[in-house]
Nucleic acid binder design. Structure first.
Lengths: 150, 150
DNA sequence: TGCGATTGCATCGCGTACGATTATTTTGAG
DNA sequence: CTCAAAATAATCGTACGCGATGCAATCGCA
C-alpha cells in the first residue's frame, strides 16, 4: 500500500496567475517607458493624462477631470497646483459657482501638444502590438475596469 | 466648390484609446476592490503581493522579492520594515553573505495564508470573468509587460 | 425666506514608487 | 594577496493615490 500523502499545507495562489498583478506590473512598466519621454516635456505621467484631457477639451473643472481619470480632488489638487506652478494651466474659481475651480490651458500648455505628438506612436511601437491588437486589449481592460468599479 | 476645411488644430490623442491609461485605471480599480478585503488582514496591496511571494517560497532576499514584483529596494525596504513591525516577517542579514537581507515568515505570517484564501476567488468573481478569460487576459498583459521592459 | 443637507474643493497623514546617492560586503583581476 | 569594481540594501527627496476630515458655496424644502 502506498504511503499516505504528507499533509503539506495547500499551496497558496501563484503570483503569475494574478490578473491584478499583471495589471499592476504592466502599468508600472508603462510608467518606466513614459518617464524619459515625458521628462522632455516636464510632465509626470498623471500630469500628462491631465494634459490629454485638457487638449481634448479645455476649461474643465477639477471634478470633470477627476471623472475622466478616476481620481479625487485629494490627488488632483496638489498635482494641478504643480502644473499651475509649471505654467501649463491656470486655476480659477468659477464666478457662476464659486465652489468649482476651472482649469484652463495656458498658451504654453496648448503649445506643448505639438511637442507631445510623437509620444503615442512611440509608445505603441514599444508595445510590439499592432494598432488593432492594442485597441482590442484596451477595450477588454476598459470593460474590466467598468465591471470592477461597481 | 466646397468650402475649404477650416484649419482646426489637429486633434490630440483620445484618452479612452490609451492602452496605458486602461491599465493604469484598471489597476487602481483593482486596488479599490482589494482594499476592504486586505484591511481585514491588515495588509496593503503591495504588502499582500510580498506575502504571496513568501507563501509560495519562504526565506527570500530583498532582491529576489524585488525581482518577482519588479520593485527595487528603495520601495521594498520601508515596506518590509512595516511588515516586520506588524509581526508578519523577520528580517535578518544572511550570515553567508552579509550584503543580503533574508525575509522569513513568522508563525503569524504563515497563519495569515488561511485567512487570505477567500480573497482570490472573491476577486475573480468581481471581475465578471470566467477563470479561462481571466487567464487569457493575464497572459496577454504579462506578455506585454515583458515586451515593455526591454 | 431660512436653514439643514449636499456639493466641490482643499488639507492632512500614510504608504507606496522611483531616481539618485551612500554604505557595506563580496568578488575578481593582476 | 590587494584593491578597485561590482553587488546588495538602505537612505533621501519628490510625486502620486487615497481615506478621513474640513470648509465654503449652493441647493432644496418647509
Amino acid at each position: 500500500m502506498p504511503a499516505a500523502q504528507p499533509p503539506l499545507p495547500p499551496p497558496g495562489p501563484k503570483l503569475s496567475e494574478f490578473l491584478c498583478f499583471a495589471l499592476y506590473s504592466a502599468s508600472h512598466a508603462f510608467n518606466r517607458l513614459y518617464k524619459p519621454l515625458l521628462d522632455e516635456l516636464g510632465l509626470t505621467y498623471p500630469q500628462y493624462l491631465v494634459m490629454v484631457t485638457l487638449w481634448e477639451r479645455d476649461d474643465r473643472t477639477v471634478g470633470e477631470i477627476g471623472e475622466q481619470l478616476f481620481l479625487e480632488s485629494n490627488t488632483l489638487t496638489p498635482l494641478l497646483k504643480r502644473m499651475e506652478a509649471a505654467g501649463l494651466v491656470s486655476r480659477s474659481r468659477d464666478p457662476a459657482d464659486e465652489r468649482q475651480v476651472r482649469l484652463r490651458l495656458t498658451d504654453e500648455g496648448r503649445a506643448l501638444l505639438d511637442k507631445a505628438r510623437h509620444v503615442p506612436p512611440c509608445v505603441l511601437e514599444a508595445t510590439g502590438l499592432t494598432a488593432d491588437e492594442a485597441r482590442s486589449l484596451t477595450d477588454q481592460i476598459g470593460a474590466l475596469r467598468t465591471t470592477l468599479s461597481r
